[in-house]
Design a protein around this nucleic acid. Sequence first.
DNA 1: CAATAATTTATAATGATTCTAAAGTAGTGT
DNA 2: ACACTACTTTAGAATCATTATAAATTATTG
Lengths: 139, 139
Amino acid sequence: MSNNSVFIEKLRSSGLRPTRQRLQICKLLFDRQNTFHFSIQGLSKMIVNQHKEKKVSLATVYNTINAFKQKGYLKEISINSDKTYFDTNTSNHHHFFNESTNELIDLDNSEVGKIDIRKKIPGKKINSIEVIVKIANSN
Amino acid sequence: MSNNSVFIEKLRSSGLRPTRQRLQICKLLFDRQNTFHFSIQGLSKMIVNQHKEKKVSLATVYNTINAFKQKGYLKEISINSDKTYFDTNTSNHHHFFNESTNELIDLDNSEVGKIDIRKKIPGKKINSIEVIVKIANSN
DNA sequence: CAATAATTTATAATGATTCTAAAGTAGTGT
DNA sequence: ACACTACTTTAGAATCATTATAAATTATTG
Ligand SMILES: [Mn+2]
Ligand SMILES: [Mn+2]
Ligand SMILES: [Zn+2]
Ligand SMILES: [Zn+2]
């Protein structure tokens, strides 16, 4: 458990004042050992499960997550039209998507060989290269 | 312009009887030289622009596209939460996504070097590997 | 404390997609 | 053709995620 000031700074640098609600969200996301993937729905449930004095409205959850995304503290991952996931791992990396469980698993950049894009698009620059490996139970 | 029977068969094999509406959709998608990417909204506009006697309801468009997808005649591509695209190119291939224009461009399998996934997930099989290269104007 | 600015919240609006139920159309057997 | 049945289309409703709104609450400043 890090010092509160870390999270306060994270909010401030995202253009948000550190309020009770925002701090709760911020700690849920970043006060932990390992990065993780979540949906807004899942995050909302986590908030409810913490049984704090007051609830946090969905609007505040969305606003806070969007501010973090904007600032680059979160990545958004689109797997299919129905689900949007966010990732507290903002490093350059890829994903397995388990279609049986709807779970995301990180695929570190070092766990994928160099991706060789041989087609050029003149006048355009590459912003990102993302690999999604869809998996399922093998039996 | 191929023989109608090709499209009738495409519908039949998708479990759909060849009706006027479905044939119109089917030809829009497959009676052409090159494969292409589309959204439901875009496809609906194409249908309107054909000025046929009668309109085609959105429900029929969705139903028909979903049947083709199920059968494997269309691929669905998720780039971000807001937009779902379909692809009449069902071969194994990848995509550029132009973030300036929201356009998809095919990246043939042969235009990407072999993708080397070094991480194993025991008990799981790989269903697909998809690469999305996001691009934008370079200046 | 008073005045002001920022925040939270409930609720409404939006947009894509799916569902529903009624009306329309086609296929079958006579 | 006629009756009967099965399938299809359609408008509109329902759903769900997300964003917008506007009033109530809370924090900050003087
Ligand atoms: Mn879908
Ligand atoms: Mn988004
Ligand atoms: Zn990740
Ligand atoms: Zn394609």
